[in-house]
Design a protein around this nucleic acid. Structure first.
Lengths: 120, 120
DNA sequence: AAAGATACCTTGCGTCACAAGACTATGGCA
DNA sequence: TGCCATAGTCTTGTGACGCAAGGTATCTTT
């Protein structure tokens, strides 16, 4: 039960909007989103996160979904972004900018240590 | 019960380290931290957040505290950062940098809309 | 037959920010 | 005297959500 790391908490409220951003450039299916989010700096660690999340996004009207069967392959549920979803993504981008700027204002008070050098 | 806004989720895991950063420049008491965090872009909205948080920081060994009575004033509990707390703050600064960079990589795919202009 | 990959989904857990409010003491105002 | 505001600490209950673990099904590889 190691789901309580510091970075896990940081991801809260971020993964959903990130999915919307990805879907802005085209529909994808669940596992595909898991992989893409993982490639971008490990933004997601478990499949147990994505499916409930996609359900919530759908209930909120930010995405729609339909099953697609491509010859001989396993059926996949593709998610598409809606207009409301696009607006939500843009709203998040603004909010995120403000928020990170606030945190950065605080963090600037701390001198940055060099990570490569040994702390001694 | 409006504690489930989008920005509330973003604050998760951030407020604690922010307190540590503030304490790096000198001891403070509870309400003082609430006010300072509020001034920095509304990083905290409720006193109900800070006291349990300070307890956790103390249990983790990141801060110590002692009551101080300044002539005629109400006693205040001042919190001081420890060496472990300083290191935690620096660790957070690095983690936060990596995390926000990952998110920024994704968000860069979205064109930035002008907030001042009407979306029409 | 066994293992592994791909794809979907559910269950239970734990953390933590929040609202609301309790408690105490002081100072101002009528 | 009563009343209210303010400052300061703290507790309680709620809710969101990321996560690990596990479950189902099919296809391929060993």
């Amino acid at each position: 039960m190691a789901q309580n790391t510091a970075s896990t908490q940081l991801r809260r409220g971020v993964i959903g909007p990130c999915i919307l951003v990805l879907l802005c450039s085209g529909p994808r299916y669940g596992l595909q989103l898991v992989r893409e989010l993982d490639e971008v700096g490990g933004l997601l660690t478990s499949q147990g996160t994505i499916y409930p999340l996609l359900n919530r996004l759908q209930e909120s009207g930010f995405v729609t979904s339909q099953w697609e069967v491509e010859s001989d392959e396993r059926p996949k549920r593709y998610y598409q972004i809606t207009q409301a979803g696009r607006e939500e993504a843009e709203t998040f981008k603004r909010d995120w900018g403000h928020f990170t700027q606030s945190v950065a204002t605080l963090l600037d008070q701390l001198p940055t240590k060099n990570t490569d050098e040994e702390t001694k």
